[in-house]
């Protein structure tokens, strides 16, 4: 029996043989007031799960597009407290699963146990800590799980089998499989390392595997949807936001991606 929205989502998608469409946006980019309507547009466009990024001054895992989004959000006065306010506002209008996506330091400063409780109360369903390795994870995973939140970890092309096993142990909800070495950002080509990495990860877990990093076109999203249980699109949305795209344009781009993902999984269903 699924205990929260993330698990419920993947179970219902599994039943209908569809891949999840996951979007990342930085909370507060371009302003805290704007984020809830961007999220509503994404949901109308067919996004299943939202990664809500907490802006950080030194985002070492991110490429230039998300770095710039983080800067805009910080300049607009976005704090972790405000991110939770934004989550609460989204939750008033929507049941979309929300994954809080953050670097460790803002969470440490806020207070980890307090953050877990407050995030749950604000309607957050899970937490991904970008720079928390599984070796250091135990003391952090405990309060998050105790608050009833999922803990999502990253698997990377460089992850050894021993590491993948630990990543599977510490993860709940789903595992975020990084489709290529490097930082976040759009790429023209998909990495050939994705399929082997998905297979290697699958040996250690039954959790859904969502793939991301570099997916920016409907063609890429379709290709990934054939391999993974979910497709994450981040920088492409953040780039749209940086171009002052209105809600209608964001929704239209999301819908295009959604169609590509569903088209791919439907075609796969017929040939299966």
């Amino acid at each position: 029996m699924p205990t929260n929205r993330i698990q419920f989502l993947f179970e219902s998608l599994r039943a209908s043989r569809r891949a999840a469409f996951i979007a990342y946006v930085t909370a507060g980019d371009p302003s805290p007031a704007r984020t809830p309507s961007i999220v509503a547009a994404l949901e109308r466009g067919g996004v299943d799960l939202l990664e809500l990024g907490v802006p950080f001054s030194d985002p070492v895992a991110d490429g230039p597009v998300i770095q710039a989004g983080s800067d805009r959000a910080l300049k607009a006065g976005t704090t972790l407290v405000k991110v939770l306010d934004i989550a609460r506002e989204i939750r008033e209008a929507s049941q979309i699963p929300l994954l809080l996506f953050t670097y460790l330091n803002p969470a440490l400063r806020y207070g980890f146990e307090k953050l877990a409780r407050d995030a749950k109360a604000a309607g957050i369903d899970g937490v991904l800590l970008t720079d928390l390795s599984v070796e250091e994870a135990a003391p952090y995973v405990k309060p998050i799980r105790e608050a009833g939140l999922d803990t999502v970890f990253l698997a990377a092309p460089t992850s050894t089998p021993a590491r993948l096993k630990l990543i599977a142990q510490y993860s709940s909800g789903f595992i975020y499989v990084v489709s290529r070495a490097g930082v976040t950002g759009e790429r023209d080509d998909l990495s050939a390392s994705l399929q082997p990495l998905l297979e290697a990860t699958r040996k250690f877990t039954n959790l859904p595997l969502a793939a991301g990093f570099g997916i920016s076109t409907p063609e890429q999203a379709a290709a990934v949807a054939m391999m993974a249980d979910g497709v994450v699109v981040g920088s492409a949305f953040v780039r749209l936001i940086s171009q002052d795209a209105d809600d209608a344009r964001i929704e239209a781009f999301a819908r295009e991606m959604r169609h590509a993902i569903d088209g791919a999984t439907a075609a796969q269903g017929k040939t299966a």
Binding site: A61, V134, E136, A156, T158, T160, R163, V178
Partner: peptide, 13 residues
């Protein structure tokens, strides 16, 4: 300790 994105963990090992 070692607080880096997962992709850097194996190289650090």
């Amino acid at each position: 300790g070692r607080f880096v994105p997962e992709a850097l963990m194996a190289p650090l090992e």
